[in-house]
């Protein structure tokens, strides 16, 4: 392949963030906006995971019988992975709150167009 996995993964993350930003800023439908925001979160998480990834490395789980030196040299860096776990859950809960508010707004206004609801 022309580019390695890590670089390609960074590009994927960037593409997801760009798509999400575009949707969140320019699409009119509120649910579409929220979908865009979910993609921004996904993109950032993918970016963090890719940071910890070591090409040709092994999973950061210390198995019995493994020598400490090999582990230290070839394991991928676990700190970003631990962060992503938290971040995924935070993203999902924020999303649930947003969708809940949208449902309440639909009951009140009868529409989910952001132009009609959010503009004063």
């Amino acid at each position: 392949m022309i580019i390695d996995v890590q670089l390609a993964s960074f590009f994927t993350a960037a593409a997801l963030i760009a798509l999400g930003l575009f949707a969140a800023l320019f699409l009119d439908n509120l649910i579409k906006k929220v979908i865009g925001l979910a993609f921004i979160g996904d993109g950032v998480n993918l970016f963090l995971v890719t940071l910890g990834f070591k090409p040709g490395g092994i999973v950061y789980i210390f198995l019995p019988g493994m020598s400490a030196d090999t582990f230290a040299q070839s394991a991928s860096y676990p700190l970003p992975y631990a962060m992503v776990l938290t971040s995924i859950v935070i993203g999902a809960s924020t999303l649930a709150v947003m969708l809940g508010i949208i449902i309440m707004l639909y009951k009140k206004h009868g529409t989910i167009s952001s132009k009609k609801i959010l503009d004063d």
């Binding site: 490395g57 999973v59 999902a92």
Partner: peptide
């Protein structure tokens, strides 16, 4: 990308829970 635990969480949250949330909304 060598992150099995994150993959598990993302598989549940990203491919099941979030679409269901959206579908419910």
């Amino acid at each position: 990308l060598m992150a099995p635990d994150v993959a598990l969480t993302q598989a549940i949250v990203g491919s099941a829970i979030i679409p269901v949330f959206f579908a419910l909304a």
